[in-house]
C-alpha cells in the first residue's frame, strides 16, 4: 500500500492466521455438498488469505508466497476446469454440462456428485486467482515510484 511501517505484531499475526484461513477455505470448498459453502466462498477466502499477507508483509515480500504473474493464469485455469467438465460431458454424448455422461464409474447420481465437486474446485481456483490479480492490478504503478 502506501508507506508501510514494519509492525512485528501485525506481521506475526497475519502470517500465523493466513494458513489457517486457507485450510478452512479448502474445507469450505470440499465440504460444500453437505453444509453451506462451496467453490465461490472458499475461493474468496483463499484470496482473502493471500491478500492478508500482501497487506501485512507488503506486496513485494508476498511475491515469494504467490507471485503476481500467477493470478490470471490460475483464474483462467479454473474457468477452463469448469468449461472442460461441461465439454467432456458434451463429447461423451450428453448436452453441455450434463454430468451424467462423465466417463466415470457408478450410477448417475454419483456422476453428478463428482461433477459438482470438479466444478467447485474450478470455481474456487478461478475466484482466488482473479480476485488476487485484481488486487495486484489495482496496486500496480504506485504513486511514489
Amino acid at each position: 500500500m502506501m508507506r508501510r511501517d514494519d509492525d512485528a505484531i501485525i506481521s506475526l499475526v497475519s502470517r500465523t492466521v493466513s494458513p489457517f484461513i486457507m485450510i478452512f477455505a479448502l474445507y469450505v470448498i470440499f465440504h460444500g455438498h453437505y453444509s453451506p459453502g462451496g467453490g465461490f466462498q472458499g475461493g474468496t477466502m483463499l484470496a482473502a488469505a493471500l491478500i492478508l499477507v500482501r497487506l501485512a508483509a507488503g506486496s513485494d515480500l508476498a511475491q515469494l508466497q504467490f507471485p503476481r504473474s500467477w493470478g490470471t493464469p490460475l483464474g483462467s485455469a479454473g474457468v477452463l476446469i469448469y468449461w472442460g467438465t461441461g465439454f467432456v460431458s458434451m463429447l461423451c454424448g450428453g448436452n453441455f454440462l450434463n454430468y451424467a455422461f462423465l466417463p466415470v464409474s457408478g450410477p448417475p447420481p454419483h456422476h453428478r456428485n463428482l461433477g459438482i465437486l470438479f466444478i467447485e474446485v474450478g470455481v474456487g481456483l478461478a475466484v482466488m486467482g482473479i480476485l488476487t490479480a485484481i488486487y495486484d492490478d489495482l496496486l500496480e504503478g504506485r504513486p511514489h515510484d
Binding site: V127, D137, L138
Partner: peptide, 13 residues
C-alpha cells in the same frame, strides 16, 4: 453477488 463484485472491480480500475 459475484456480478456485483466484478462490476465494482472494473469500476475501481
Amino acid at each position: 453477488i459475484v456480478v456485483g463484485v466484478a462490476t465494482s472491480g472494473v469500476a475501481y480500475a
